[in-house]
């Protein structure tokens, strides 16, 4: 049974955690790349470290791991 979302449901709470962080990573990563390589970095302190890009990478990796690790499997119970 999926952990935490209820009897017979196929999606685990951890899957939601993964999807959320993956989607945010996939928004931040290309935006950060565009800002970095296109010379559009916002005038924030330490923008030379390109935090948007690197944070996007981190969230994408974290999200990928949780999404894949807790993705619904065929054998999981289905909601009636």
């Amino acid at each position: 049974m999926a952990e935490g979302t209820g009897r017979g449901e196929t999606l685990s709470i951890w899957f939601f955690v993964g999807i959320m962080t993956l989607v945010y990573g996939l928004v931040l990563l290309p935006y950060g790349a565009w800002a970095w390589f296109g010379g559009h970095e916002a005038p924030t302190t330490l923008n030379r470290l390109h935090p948007t890009f690197w944070w996007g990478v981190l969230l994408t990796l974290f999200g990928c791991f949780y999404t894949l690790r807790f993705r619904p499997h065929r054998g999981d119970e289905r909601k009636v």
């Binding site: 931040l28 935006y31 950060g32 800002a35 916002a42 005038p43 924030t44 948007t52 996007g56």
Partner: peptide, 12 residues
């Protein structure tokens, strides 16, 4: 937050 976070990170 505003000091370090530009668009995207600010939204987060």
């Amino acid at each position: 937050l505003i000091r370090y976070c530009g668009p995207g990170l600010l939204g987060l």
